[in-house]
Design a protein around this nucleic acid. Structure first.
Lengths: 118, 118
DNA sequence: CCAACCTTGACACAACCGTGGTAAGGTTGG
DNA sequence: CCAACCTTACCACGGTTGTGTCAAGGTTGG
């Protein structure tokens, strides 16, 4: 019976065993099972688990995001649909919503000041 | 003042005006503003809103997923990191030194765990 | 001028996410 | 045989998402 049990895997990857089950439940990383149904984590899974951990922490993303990335990777039609969404707008050169908004706020402020001065 | 007001945009895209504000708040689609701050939706935004709607419904994804797709599209380092995660495991039979190293590492961990358990 | 819009901000609420815990029972290795 | 694991299935609970609604106030077109 080679491979780490869930507890050992938890210890070496930084997840809790509870979360390892959750991650599997979410379809992200599924270890193989022993004949009695025990989860057995191999080197590949351990690596993926560690990398996943970094990924989430380093890039401020959620498990759901990772799951979606996976879908994007597997389902080509989904990838195409998303791609199509990106292109669903006649060439707007660049979009900077935040700064536009800021500028507009300033103008509003000035307008209000001008009005108050009257 | 050209462009549809929020209510009109809602009517033609199938979203509620509340959701149009929410979608903007989430950074997905931001219309430009009139001088008084009114949202003005142009054809591109309307198109994106309709496509977004289909996308979510047809592919069982959430606004958050769409937001993440957008990030993935803009942030190349994020894209790379996710890509790296995908490649962090798949049964590559022999990547000569790495697998030996990994196995050795695991055994070490196991030894340490066993020792700690005593 | 006024009705009918628009704005932001807030309260509400169900559904889900992330996470821990606990219970009841099976497996295993010394 | 038994302690120490493992399994699934639940309860709990704070945080986030998605959505409606309402209030207080500004804008606009006829």
């Amino acid at each position: 019976m080679n491979g780490l049990t869930i507890q050992e895997a938890a210890a070496t990857t930084g997840w809790s065993s509870r979360m390892l089950r959750y991650i599997e439940h979410e379809g992200l990383i599924a270890p193989r099972r022993s004949s009695a149904g025990y989860r057995l984590y191999g080197p590949e899974q351990l690596q993926r688990l560690r990398t996943l951990r970094e990924l989430l922490q380093e890039h401020e993303m959620s498990l759901g995001d990772a799951g979606f990335a996976l879908r994007l990777n597997r389902e080509s039609d989904l990838r195409d649909a998303v791609e199509a969404w990106f292109e669903a707008s006649p060439s707007k050169p660049d979009e900077v919503p935040a700064s536009d908004w800021l500028r507009w706020e300033q103008e509003k402020h000035q307008r209000l000041l001008a009005e108050a001065a009257r």
